[in-house]
């Protein structure tokens, strides 16, 4: 039973990180039907920014908790700036072009950002200090769940609640929902569609940056390539849960995390990815729009 619980919690932690990144994919897809392949790179840039800030602040001998909060904050701001600029440069000019053009542009941006960080920083792995302290109250359970895992779970829950409130109950949230339903109609009703799209990118980038900082302090190292694999897995999570749906992205992340964790724990880690993707295929066969996705009528 202990073993099951450990695997369950391990899968939950891993799933939370997928979910944080998947939120960005799914929001952008919901608004402009674009799969933003450069999203994983935003996550990677968030982690790098945090590392730079941490290195600077650590030398001043500041309290580690304060350091990680400031670093996380700066990473969010920085990633948001990247997400905003990305949309203005690479996607806005292509908004009325065929979907494929924007997709290719997204892949191009992903490669560009990866290599930009590779050249500007390093190709080597960099150690990411673990600044999350070991909580004393968790010590008896340390063999099952660590402080970092708890922080990741709590942060995901908080981010999820804030996002839900933002989209359900605020004016900009209402505008986002309207834009996602029908962009032309929304603009006719006086909604500034460009602002809404920019805001969506900023929001997605912020969650990705939070995910980047959390996972970097969880595994303790980063390099320019981490965004790619995490991005692919998060994309799978978003599709699994139903792309375009926020609760779907989170559920998809958890399902993927658990599948991987249990497949490793009870069968073999050699087949971790095999089971994860097998599950995706099965779900898409029986429910093509994902677990919580709405089936979309093709526009005539």
């Amino acid at each position: 039973m202990d073993y099951f619980l450990e695997l369950f919690l391990g899968g939950l932690t891993r799933g939370s990180i997928y979910a944080l990144i998947a939120l960005g994919y799914t929001m952008v897809y919901g608004i402009i039907q674009l799969i933003n392949f450069a999203h994983g790179e935003i996550y990677m840039i968030g982690a790098f920014t945090a590392l730079i800030v941490i290195s600077v602040l650590m030398s001043t001998g500041m309290n580690p908790v304060a350091v990680i909060l400031i670093a996380g904050f700066v990473a969010v701001i920085y990633s948001c700036a990247y997400g905003f600029t990305l949309e203005k440069i690479a996607y806005k000019p292509l908004r009325n072009a065929p979907r494929l053009s924007a997709l290719i542009s997204a892949i191009g941006m992903s490669l560009f950002l990866q290599n930009y960080v590779l050249l500007a920083q390093t190709c080597d792995f960099l150690p990411f200090p673990n600044l999350i302290p070991d909580f004393e109250c968790i010590e008896p359970f340390a063999h099952i769940i660590g402080s970092t895992d708890v922080v990741i779970l709590v942060t995901t829950a908080v981010v999820m609640i804030i996002l839900t409130i933002l989209i359900r109950y605020t004016k900009i949230g209402k505008a986002m929902r309207a834009t996602s339903q029908d962009r032309v109609m929304a603009s006719l009703m006086g909604i500034d569609v460009n602002t809404v799209i920019s805001f969506t990118f900023i929001l997605g980038s912020a969650t990705a940056a939070i995910g980047g900082v959390l996972i970097a302090s969880h595994i303790g190292m980063i390099n320019f390539y981490i965004g790619f694999i995490a991005g692919i897995k998060a994309f799978v999570a978003a599709v699994l849960g139903g792309i375009g749906s926020l609760p779907g992205a989170v559920l998809g992340g958890f399902v993927l995390g658990w599948t991987e964790s249990f497949a490793t724990g009870y069968i073999s880690s050699d087949y971790e990815d095999v089971f994860a993707f097998l599950f995706l295929v099965l779900i898409l066969i029986f429910k093509p729009s994902g677990i919580l996705g709405r089936s979309e009528q093709s526009k005539v």
Binding site: Y3, E6, G10, R14, Y225
Partner: peptide, 18 residues
């Protein structure tokens, strides 16, 4: 066991080792 290089984390394998 074989693990996947570059994966996000290895907590499940670590649990298995334990």
């Amino acid at each position: 066991e074989g693990i996947t290089p570059g994966a996000v984390d290895y907590s499940a394998v670590v649990q298995k080792i334990k």
